[in-house]
Simulated scan of single mutants.
Amino acid sequence: MDEFLCVVSAPFKQHATDRISIRDFEFALSFGLKWMSPENASKVRDTALALRLLEADENKLVPTFDIGKVEIPRGFRPSEKIFHERPLIEQIMAMIAACSGMDNRNVAALISRKQETLGDMVDIEIAALVVAREIGCDISRIYPKVLADMFPNME
């Protein structure tokens, strides 16, 4: 399972709820689980919202994926890499995994097959967007990032 999904799921699992306040989400990551600083917990929240893994509803955070499908391994502790900007393809894959409940390996296989079907004429990120669209994932928030990545000199 995607490491970032484990981190985002943990506060909900810890509180046994499907809605949690922003404060409690960040508190669980930083003080409850002792995984990160409060600043990094805020970064996780912001990234999860940007990737549409979480939605803000009033003052509560709500996962857009089934947290019951996320298994957090015993003794799990996130690595430092979750605080760095992830490559675009990893961001898209995380969104597809969250939407579909598939693991990253299956998502990668789907994307690879789609790219082959398209005759390897499109970048892997575009093939991933097609896969996401075909399985019904709303990933519209990432379109501007993909466009900026594909055409960096466009304004």
Rank of each mutant, 00 (worst) to 15 (best):
P73F: 02
I124R: 12
K60C: 03
F27S: 15
L29F: 00
L118K: 13
F27C: 14
I111E: 03
E55A: 14
H15M: 13
I20W: 01
R105P: 05
I126F: 01
N106Q: 08
L88M: 04
E26H: 02
F65I: 04
F83Y: 05
V146K: 00
F25L: 08
D24W: 00
V44A: 05
G68Y: 01
E55K: 14
V107L: 07
I96Y: 01
L61I: 03
I126M: 12
G136L: 02
F65Q: 08
K60S: 08
E55D: 15
F4Q: 02
V131D: 02
S79G: 15
D2A: 03
D24F: 00
F31Q: 07
E155Q: 10
H84F: 02
P38L: 12
R141F: 12
E39V: 00
D103M: 01
L5R: 05
M1Q: 06
A16T: 10
G119Q: 12
M154R: 15
R52S: 13
L118C: 10
A98Q: 07
R113I: 04
R74F: 15
C137M: 08
A48R: 09
R86T: 14
L5A: 06
Q14Y: 14
E26L: 05
V130K: 06
A94F: 00
R19T: 14
F31L: 13
A50S: 14
P144L: 01
P38C: 06
T17E: 08
D120E: 09
M154G: 15
Q14H: 09
K81G: 10
K43D: 11
T117N: 12
D149A: 07
S30C: 14
V122E: 03
M95Q: 09
S37C: 11
G68L: 10
H15I: 08
I72R: 02
D123E: 13
A48F: 02
S30M: 03
I124V: 13
